[in-house]
Simulated scan of single mutants.
Amino acid sequence: MTRRDDYLSLYNSYLGHCNEHDFAGMTTFYAPIIQINGVPTDAGAVTAQFAPLVTAFPDWHWKVRHLLVDGDDIVVHFTVTGTHRGTFRGQEATGRQVSVTEFTLYKVKDGKFAEVWDLLDTDAIIQQIG
């Protein structure tokens, strides 16, 4: 297997945990201290940020549109979908479905995600739940 194959396998396994909303499983893919958009963050705090999102959108799902491995970088372009069933940023549940774009770059070091740069169109979510 090549490094590319290893990283594809690593990422696909991680994505499975994400889409199952398995926060404990997700945490195992992170370095103990991981850079999130340039800010050093404890691995447990990273997954904690997903809890309110999944509470608001219990069927939150990431679908890969494009995935690129370049050296120690994994770059992913997603379509993210969910149904607004709980409070999100002060907005009570509307039952509306959302679909937004997300781009994420992961830097792998020693088999773990050491850095993540993420861009999610949160404004589009707010507009769609309206």
Rank of each mutant, 00 (worst) to 15 (best):
D73F: 14
D73Y: 15
D73P: 01
I74L: 10
V75D: 01
V75H: 00
V75E: 07
V76R: 08
V76A: 11
V76W: 02
H77L: 01
H77M: 02
H77R: 07
H77N: 07
H77Q: 06
H77A: 03
F78G: 01
F78N: 03
T79P: 09
T79G: 02
T79E: 07
T79K: 09
T79Q: 04
T79S: 03
V80H: 12
V80K: 11
V80F: 14
T81G: 06
T81A: 12
T81Q: 13
G82I: 05
G82L: 05
G82Q: 10
T83Q: 05
T83G: 04
T83M: 05
H84K: 03
H84L: 00
H84M: 00
R85N: 09
R85G: 08
R85L: 10
R85K: 11
G86T: 06
G86V: 10
T87G: 01
T87N: 06
T87Q: 02
F88R: 03
F88A: 10
F88V: 10
F88H: 09
R89H: 14
Q91G: 00
Q91A: 09
Q91I: 03
Q91C: 06
E92P: 00
E92A: 15
A93T: 00
A93L: 08
A93K: 04
A93R: 05
A93M: 02
T94C: 08
G95P: 12
G95F: 13
R96P: 15
R96A: 11
R96D: 14
R96T: 11
Q97D: 11
V98K: 06
V98H: 08
V98D: 03
V98G: 02
V98W: 08
S99L: 13
S99I: 10
S99Y: 14
S99M: 15
S99V: 12
V100C: 09
T101N: 11
T101C: 10
T101A: 13
T101L: 08
T101V: 09
E102R: 05
E102I: 05
E102G: 11
E102P: 07
E102Q: 14
E102V: 10
F103N: 05
F103R: 02
F103S: 04
T104E: 01
T104V: 06
T104W: 01
T104N: 04
T104M: 01
L105Q: 06
L105W: 02
L105C: 02
L105K: 05
L105G: 01
Y106L: 13
Y106H: 14
Y106G: 07
K107V: 12
K107I: 12
V108F: 05
V108A: 07
K109I: 15
K109D: 15
K109R: 11
K109C: 09
